[in-house]
């Protein structure tokens, strides 16, 4: 499929429903009628090319538009990543948790295997939440302020002081791998656990874990290959514009 600005938004979704995730995360409301991609983007105040680059990547998977995505204001990407976070925290994770709870009630195995999986998954949730908290409370506000201050005549004093001793590179060190445990969970369920009596739920949990895993993967790619390089560039510009 060739994705172009004059294509109808509804046709785009119909040809690849996985793109719904992108729409949701950009907070594009439904009810497109016959509007084109271009029109919908304009109405929602979303940069057309930013949108096109994202959906093309999600759809084709052929090329990664890292360079192109970097040319947009960083606040867009932050907004996107933030809604991705809330999608994980408010929806994906509780859903998987609930399903494991449900499986537990079906589980009559002597070893209480599902109880074990639930414990494992709850540990994961804790880890995951602190990862996201770090980004939401420290990293993203820093990035937004960096972009804001760069546009000013003179930077805010407190921000200027902060940036002297800080770079986004420090964050990279703290950026832990949140996929590892999820992959383990998937492998244990897939390889080492006999499914409990209700197979439909079991299969569905696996499907959702695979989905979340892929989604997290994309999330990491966007952070490490677009967000971080872009912020490094902004930091450089900032230091050039406001030398010490």
């Amino acid at each position: 499929m060739h994705i172009h600005p004059n294509m109808k938004m509804s046709d785009l979704v119909q040809s690849d429903f996985e793109l719904l995730a992108v729409l949701q995360r950009l907070k594009i409301p439904f009810g497109f009628k016959d509007k084109t991609i271009q029109t919908v983007c304009k109405e929602q105040g979303i940069d057309l090319h930013f949108f096109l680059n994202l959906v093309k990547w999600f759809h084709e998977r052929d090329f990664f538009p890292g360079e192109t995505l970097m040319n947009h204001p960083v606040k867009w990407l932050v907004k996107y990543l933030r809604s991705t976070h809330s999608c994980y925290v408010d929806y994906y994770i509780p859903r998987i948790e609930n399903e494991i709870v449900q499986m537990e009630s079906f589980d009559h195995s002597a070893g209480h295997n599902m109880q074990l999986m639930l414990k494992f998954f709850r540990e994961y949730i804790t880890e995951f939440s602190s990862h996201i908290q770090l980004e939401e409370e420290k990293i993203f506000p820093y990035i937004l302020r960096l972009e804001e201050n760069l546009a000013k005549e003179a930077p805010d004093q407190d921000f200027w002081e902060k940036i002297q001793g800080y770079t986004i590179k420090d964050f990279l060190d703290e950026h832990s791998d949140i996929e590892e445990k999820l992959v383990d969970l998937r492998n244990i369920l897939l390889k080492y656990l006999a499914p409990p009596s209700d197979n439909c739920i079991f299969t569905n949990v696996l499907v959702e874990i695979f989905r979340l895993g892929n989604d997290l993967n994309d999330h990491t790619i966007l952070e490490e290959n677009v967000l971080i390089p872009q912020v490094l560039k902004l930091e450089e510009e900032f230091k050039k514009k406001f030398p010490g």
Partner: peptide, 22 residues
């Protein structure tokens, strides 16, 4: 061999396979 990387994942495997007890 197991395709499990994290310590907590290995712990789960060990319990499931009776290597250690809960």
């Amino acid at each position: 061999k197991l395709d499990i990387k994290t310590v907590s994942g290995l712990t789960v495997y060990a319990i499931l396979n009776g290597i250690i007890k809960m």
